[in-house]
């Protein structure tokens, strides 16, 4: 194919120029990184919560075995109608078990189990909240890490106006660097990995901060401690 041929030509010519540039002969001294922060467990939780709250995430510290109560309380108070979740995900069964089928004061649970192609209009128009688990948190900058999976797809944390993320306190790392190293991310990156520090925001008009420009307007983090 013609385009493939020209792609090969471009590739060879670019690489040839790069090799001929002499860049490979330069000396680059190492420069040490500033030391990382190192916090105790509770301090990590506090820092993450403080930093994320400062940029308008709502952070609640909840009991590990009754975290769903907080979820239901929020659902009732805010009048959510339809909540999207991943039934096969790590927190799917816990959500279901806490959701009596006949409770008419709770939102309807919607399962994200089909390919987005057959689910797009529902997803874009008819969902109030997406709930996900998280892979961990980062205290230094205040962020949660997500590795979306087939059970908890990528758009779950992006399209609905509210994103509820469930974070286990013992998965909060000091820094991104520490998390990537401890979990050996380089052994195999997922299709998509995310750090999320707050709700979607913009300041493009006169630096006026507005939330929910494209992604969720609200980010609620439930830290299970």
């Amino acid at each position: 194919m013609n385009s493939q041929l020209s792609n090969q030509t471009a590739r060879q010519r670019i690489l040839a120029r790069l090799h001929a540039s002499g860049t490979e002969q330069t000396d680059v001294p190492d420069a040490p990184l500033p030391s990382e922060i190192s916090l105790a467990g509770d301090a990590k939780i506090e820092r993450l919560a403080a930093l994320m709250s400062a940029i308008r995430a709502e952070v609640y510290i909840v009991e590990s075995d009754s975290w769903q109560d907080k979820l239901k309380q929020l659902a009732r108070k805010r009048g959510w109608k339809r909540v999207l979740y991943g039934p096969q995900g790590p927190i799917g069964p816990e959500i279901e078990s806490a959701w009596p089928a006949d409770a008419d004061d709770l939102p309807k649970l919607v399962a994200y189990t089909q390919p987005v192609e057959s689910f797009k209009s529902e997803l874009f128009q008819n969902i109030d909240v997406g709930i996900t688990s998280t892979r961990g948190g980062v205290a230094e900058t205040g962020a949660i890490a997500l590795w979306p999976t087939p059970a908890e797809p990528r758009l779950l944390s992006l399209v609905p106006p509210v994103h509820v993320a469930v974070l286990d306190a013992d998965t909060i790392y000091n820094s991104m660097t520490e998390m990537m190293a401890a979990e050996r991310w380089t052994d195999g990156m997922p299709t998509n990995a995310l750090f999320i520090s707050g709700p979607s925001k913009t300041a493009d008009i006169e630096f006026t901060l507005v939330f929910g420009v494209h992604g969720p307007k609200e980010l609620i983090v439930l830290i299970r401690n």
């Binding site: 930093l51 940029i55 980062v138 230094e140 900058t141 205040g142 962020a143 990156m189 997922p190 299709t191 998509n192 990995a193 995310l194 750090f195 999320i196 520090s197 707050g198 709700p199 979607s200 925001k201 992604g215």
Partner: peptide, 12 residues
């Protein structure tokens, strides 16, 4: 300190 999203894509 960090943007809202750090989006890392490694495959289709």
């Amino acid at each position: 300190l960090i943007t809202t999203y750090i989006n890392m894509i490694s495959s289709p």
